[in-house]
C-alpha cells in the first residue's frame, strides 16, 4: 500500500430525479443516489459495482461535479466542487475526466480523432499550438493507436480503438482523476482485457486515480485497490477486492459473487429472488430485504447503517454485524 492522501472525498451524496410516467402522469421521485460517501486516494482505483439502475453512473457524475447533489458534498484536492458550468468548474475539467460506456456516442462523429484528442488542449490552452500535434501523437501512442489513425473518423475505428481514442482524449490534460463508467461493457470480450490492461498501464505511467464503475465484479477486482458494492443508491459493502470476493459479507454481495460463473462451483450458485429493485419504490428498512434470503423482521423495519466490522470491512447489514440472527427472508412468506 503506497501512501497517497485523499484526492477526492464525497460525503452523504443524495441525488433525486423527478420521473414522469407517460405524458401527463404525476412526477414520481426517484432517489438514484441515497447517501453515498466515498474516498479516493491518489494513484488508487476504487471499484464501484452493482446492478443496473442502482445509481453507479449517477454517483460517477456527482463525483465529477457534472451534477450538483441534492445533499452532501464533494471535495476534490481539498476544495469544494464549484458550480457546474462555472468558469472554475470548467477549469477543473482539466484535472478530472470521464471515460464513457459508449465510445461512439462520446465522440463527435464529424471530426477526426486527432482533432478530438487535441480538443482538451485547445480548450485549456495547454502547451504551444505548434507542440500540440506532437502531444496528440504521443497520446495516441500511449493508448496503443498509431499516429496515422488520428486522421480517421470515429466510425472508421473498431470499438476498442474508439475507446482508446476516448482514453487518449481524457488523458490529454494529464488529469488526476479518471472516472471510467463501464468502459469495457460495450466491447468484445477479447478487447475488454486489452483495455483493462491499458488502464492499468496508464495508471502506472501517469499515476492517475480512478473510479471504476462496472457491474462486473471480476473486472473491478482486476483493476481496483478497493471495491464498493452499491444497492439501490447506497453502498452496502466496501473493502479490499480480494477479501470481498473471497469472503463476501453482505448477502447482496454474496449473491453477486455466486453469480460469477466458476468452473466446478455450479451447484452453489445463489440466485437472487424477487423483483429487481425499483428506485421509485424503495422498500422499507433494508432496501434489500424483499430479496434477501436471510432477512429478519428487523430488516423490514430498520435500515442498517454502513459501519466497519472488526477487520475494517464496511458493511451495511444487521445480520452480518451480528445484531440479529439470520432469518429466512421474505420471499418465501410472500409466496405463502
Amino acid at each position: 500500500m503506497k501512501p497517497g492522501g485523499a484526492l477526492l472525498e464525497a460525503e452523504g451524496l443524495v441525488r433525486r430525479y423527478a420521473m414522469r410516467r407517460g405524458i401527463m402522469g404525476r412526477a414520481v421521485e426517484v432517489r438514484a443516489v441515497d447517501g453515498v460517501s466515498l474516498k479516493l486516494e491518489r494513484g488508487r482505483t476504487l471499484g464501484l459495482v452493482g446492478e443496473s439502475g442502482c445509481g453507479k453512473s449517477t454517483t460517477g457524475r456527482l463525483v465529477l461535479g457534472m451534477e450538483t447533489p441534492d445533499a452532501g458534498r464533494v471535495s476534490f484536492e481539498g476544495a469544494t466542487m464549484p458550480q457546474p458550468g462555472s468558469a472554475a468548474w470548467r477549469k477543473l475539467r482539466a484535472r478530472m475526466q470521464m471515460v464513457f460506456q459508449d465510445p461512439l456516442g462520446a465522440l463527435d462523429r464529424r471530426l477526426p480523432i486527432a482533432t478530438q484528442v487535441a480538443e482538451p488542449l485547445d480548450i485549456h490552452n495547454i502547451g504551444a499550438v505548434s507542440e500540440r500535434a506532437a502531444r496528440v501523437e504521443a497520446l495516441l501512442r500511449a493508448v496503443g493507436l498509431r499516429p496515422d489513425q488520428g486522421a480517421l473518423y470515429p466510425h472508421e475505428l473498431s470499438g476498442g480503438q474508439r475507446q482508446r481514442a476516448v482514453l487518449a482524449r481524457a488523458l490529454a490534460t494529464d488529469p488526476a482523476l479518471l472516472v471510467c463508467d463501464e468502459p469495457i461493457s460495450a466491447l468484445d470480450v477479447s478487447i475488454q482485457a486489452q483495455v483493462m490492461n491499458l488502464l492499468l498501464d496508464l495508471q502506472e505511467q501517469f499515476g492517475t486515480s480512478m473510479l471504476f464503475v462496472s457491474h462486473d465484479l471480476r473486472a473491478v477486482r482486476q483493476v481496483s485497490h478497493r471495491v464498493a458494492v452499491m444497492y439501490l443508491g447506497r453502498i452496502v459493502e466496501e473493502g479490499e477486492p480480494d477479501a470481498v470476493l473471497h469472503d463476501p459479507a453482505h448477502p447482496y454481495t454474496r449473491a453477486l459473487v455466486s453469480a460469477i460463473p466458476h468452473p466446478g462451483r455450479m451447484g452453489q450458485r445463489m440466485v437472487l429472488q424477487g423483483d429487481p429493485p425499483n428506485p421509485a419504490d424503495r422498500p422499507s428498512g433494508c432496501a434489500f430485504h424483499p430479496r434477501c434470503p436471510v432477512a429478519n423482521s428487523l430488516c423490514a423495519r430498520e435500515a442498517p447503517v454502513l459501519k466497519p466490522r472488526a477487520d475494517g470491512r464496511l458493511i451495511a447489514c444487521h445480520v452480518a454485524h451480528g445484531e440479529v440472527a439470520a432469518g429466512h427472508g421474505f420471499t418465501g412468506q410472500e409466496a405463502a
Binding site: R21, G22, I23, M24, G25, R26, V28
Partner: peptide, 11 residues
Amino acid sequence: PRLRAAPGKAA
C-alpha cells in the same frame, strides 16, 4: 390508448 392508459398507471 397509450395516452389514455398512462394516468391510470401512474395513479
